[in-house]
Simulated assay, not measured.
Amino acid sequence: MLVWSLILGFAVDGETRSIAAFQRAYQTATNQTVARSSFYDRFTPELRALLSDLLAHALEEVAVPHTIAPQLTQFRDTMIADATVFRLHRLLTAFPATHEDQSGAQLYLVYNVTRQTLAQFKLTGERTHESSQFRTGNWLRGRLFLFDLGFYSSRRFALIDENDGFFVSRLKTNANPRIVGERRKWRGRAISLTGTHLQDRLSKLTREHIDVTGEFEFKRRKYGERQSQDIVEFRVVGVRNEDTDDYHLYVTNLPDEFTPEQVAALYSLRWKVELLFRELKSRYGLEKFETGDEAIAELLVTAALLTLVVSRALLAVFQEIEPDVEYPEERWATTFRSVAQPVLADLGLALGHPPPNLPELVRREARQPERSRLTLNKRVAQAFKTVIWP
Rank of each mutant, 00 (worst) to 15 (best):
A11L: 03
V12T: 10
G14M: 07
G14R: 05
E15F: 04
T16A: 12
S18C: 08
I19L: 15
A20M: 01
A21W: 01
F22A: 06
Q23C: 03
Q27N: 04
T28L: 12
T30F: 06
Q32M: 12
Q32N: 10
V34Y: 04
R36W: 08
F39C: 07
F39W: 05
F39Q: 08
Y40A: 09
R42V: 01
P45L: 06
A49D: 15
S52F: 07
D53P: 02
A58T: 08
L59I: 12
E60C: 11
E61D: 11
E61W: 06
V62T: 14
A63V: 05
P65S: 12
L72P: 00
F75A: 01
F75T: 02
R76G: 14
R76N: 12
R76M: 04
D77M: 00
D77C: 02
T78V: 15
T78D: 00
I80V: 15
F86A: 06
H89L: 10
L92Q: 00
A94L: 01
A97I: 03
A97M: 03
H99Y: 05
H99V: 11
E100G: 08
D101C: 03
D101H: 13
G104I: 05
A105D: 00
Q106I: 01
Q106Y: 02
R115Q: 15
Q116C: 08
Q116E: 15
L118W: 08
Q120A: 11
Q120E: 15
K122T: 13
G125Y: 06
E126L: 03
E126T: 06
T128L: 11
H129Y: 14
S131W: 04
S131N: 13
S131R: 10
G137I: 05
N138M: 09
W139R: 11
